[in-house]
């Protein structure tokens, strides 16, 4: 009897999954930092550079060379995908969990900025496109500036000192 009830309920669950009830902890730890998103966007730019540096595929004659070329290209594409997605995830969390309505007074373009980041990150997954990668990095840096400004910090841009070149945004000490 008990197992009949159980199996019937499981069958119903398959047709219409039960809602989840949360028994977990969402500590509002209050620790957020847009730096991971910035590194993600810089990585997307860097992968576009590396793909461009790779040049044309070697001819079919040299199999080892051809395999190495395809292996490198595949890895650059995989990392580009991964980091564009990382940018989306990091920005979504800060946007959704950290920013409050009162912050919008200081950052009235925040929602448009986030929307652009989502679109640009998607475009960077779909395409090899240096302009789109640079636009994504610029949008993420605007987001980082809005974040630090909302905390009352002033922002400074420094040379990134990374292989990718360009600048990184930091809160001023």
């Amino acid at each position: 009897m008990k197992s009949l009830l159980r199996s019937s309920l499981r069958l119903i669950d398959r047709l219409s999954p039960p809602e989840t009830v949360s028994a977990h902890c969402d500590i509002p730890c209050g620790i957020y930092d847009p730096h991971v998103a910035q590194i993600g966007a810089q990585t997307v730019v860097r992968m576009n550079q590396l793909i461009s540096d790779l040049g044309d595929a070697p001819g079919p004659g040299d199999q080892a060379k051809s395999a190495a070329w395809h292996n490198s290209l595949s890895r650059y594409i995989a990392v580009k995908e991964e980091h564009a997605e990382l940018v989306k995830q990091e920005v979504r969390i800060i946007w959704g969990d950290y920013f409050k309505p009162e912050h919008l007074e200081k950052a009235p373009d925040l929602h448009t900025n986030v929307w652009n980041i989502m679109k640009l990150a998607g475009k960077n997954r779909q395409e090899v496109n240096m302009q789109a990668a640079e636009d994504l990095l610029a949008a993420v840096q605007t987001f980082a500036e809005a974040f630090w400004t909302s905390k009352g910090a002033s922002v400074q841009r420094q040379p990134s000192r990374q292989a990718v070149g360009g600048e990184s945004v930091y809160p001023a000490p």
Binding site: L9, I12, D13, S16, P18, E19, T20, V21, A23, H24
Partner: peptide, 28 residues
Amino acid sequence: LGALLPFARYQVEGESMSPALSPRERVV
């Protein structure tokens, strides 16, 4: 239809009620 019934099915997520209820356990 379920919303009209006096009981509902739920699936537990998280550890805060273990060992009474484990993650993924289902309850009516």
